[in-house]
Design a protein around this nucleic acid. Structure first.
Lengths: 232, 232
DNA sequence: ACCTGAACACCGTTCAAGT
DNA sequence: ACCTGAACACCGTTCAAGT
């Protein structure tokens, strides 16, 4: 009598299939992503969970909603410790943003969903709270801090999408070369300013550019007219 | 003798099929897009051109390359006349950017490709030239103008992606409601700054926000430290 | 009621076979 | 040599049918 089992026909060799929950699905999806799957599709995820793609629609209205849930899960990894660290507030703010960008950088698809869907999970609000806290240290009023956070995150997300996707593309280097060639063959009579600024248009490392951009934003938020003047 | 024709079996009722060229394909693709097709897929386009999708690979290495070509074509519609118009340079610059955003706004898919692929067509360089020209009027040096153009376009593109895609989504309104609800149920002990700034976080029309953002950028570019100090 | 197999209506890309 | 029909390997979403 080989392989005795209480109910031999109801089990398989693989581990018992856990009951599905929204959190469990998101956890499995994040796990797949961290294993290197750039695109966590509903079908891949369903395969992993040993079911069909239709089952996921019990927990998420569509693929976008799943991606949004994955995003909030990832945002829990953003390093918010610079909030209470010593040092210049600008540097600490940029550290938080750099952590945010870094997390999205290797997941350009999630970054894209961050640009489009307005996150509203707990981790997202923790991030907003942290950024506002540092902005207040910089002496901003409530309005500037609120609108400023939005702007800072929009640029950070766009940066992650841009660089992350490019980094993922195998012909990124050759696209860059093509851009340089196009820039060098610009005709001075039609594009005099570009011709004169060829070097500056491509100078700086991505990191240097990004750092400058955030300093520009912080200076601008501090010095530009407030969003809505209290005395209209 | 009805319908005499030199070679009756070599023609169809539909108009003579024009020979394919890269420009012709892009023109057909843009035409489809302007007819309301949000996603101009290779298959749809091939159907329109009375051929199979494989034929398009003779002219474009992949779908991304086609989208990039479409993007440059669309950029020809950006209104650059504010460059030479009278009035405040900031207002004129924002008019150009508004035109750029408006063109991408109803084509979020193209906007996404603008964020990822670095355009290098003639119309793109015309846009850069125009923006730099206005920035110089604002008194910027070459470095600030070059890096500034990049930053301004990055924000403009991100704005178009964000608002355009949301606008396209039928449940955008109900997503916004869900966000408002999430914001109102924030717990003051965990998120004191958000609680205190609830109104400011959602205030302002998208246009007012966008306008403020660009003023922030312009002020920041003017007042932030130059990208690379000449005396290190 | 909750779940899901199978089908529907698509994709981009490749390649062998046509002209 | 240039072009393309057909196939490959996928998608997200729906819905009738199961338990």
């Amino acid at each position: 009598m080989p392989a005795p089992d209480a109910s031999p026909r109801s089990r398989r060799d693989r581990p018992a299939k856990p009951a599905l929950t929204a959190d469990g699905i998101v956890a499995a999806a994040v796990k797949l992503m961290n294993q290197g799957h750039d695109q966590v599709t509903l079908r891949l995820l369903a395969r992993e969970l040993d079911t069909g793609p239709a089952s996921l629609y019990v927990y998420f209205r569509n693929a976008d909603e799943l991606h949004a849930a994955m995003l909030d899960e990832m945002l829990g990894e953003v390093d918010l410790t610079p909030v209470t660290a010593p040092g210049d507030w600008r540097e600490r703010l940029m550290k938080i943003l750099a952590s945010y960008i870094h997390i999205l950088y290797t997941r350009p698809n999630l970054a894209r969903s961050a640009l489009v869907s307005r996150p509203r999970g707990r981790n997202y609000f923790d991030l907003i709270e942290a950024l506002m806290s540092v902005l207040y240290e910089g002496g901003m009023d409530t309005e500037r801090a609120a609108w400023g956070v939005d702007l800072l995150l929009q640029l950070a997300t766009a940066t992650a999408v841009e660089h992350g996707t490019r980094n993922q593309d195998p012909n990124a280097a050759q696209e860059w070369q093509a851009f340089l060639t196009a820039l060098r063959t610009i005709r001075p009579d039609r594009h005099p300013h570009i011709t004169a600024a060829t070097a500056e248009l491509v100078s700086g490392t991505p990191e240097a550019r990004s750092r400058w951009q955030f300093l520009v934003l912080l200076n601008g938020i501090l010095t530009a007219p407030a969003p809505s003047p209290r005395t209209p």
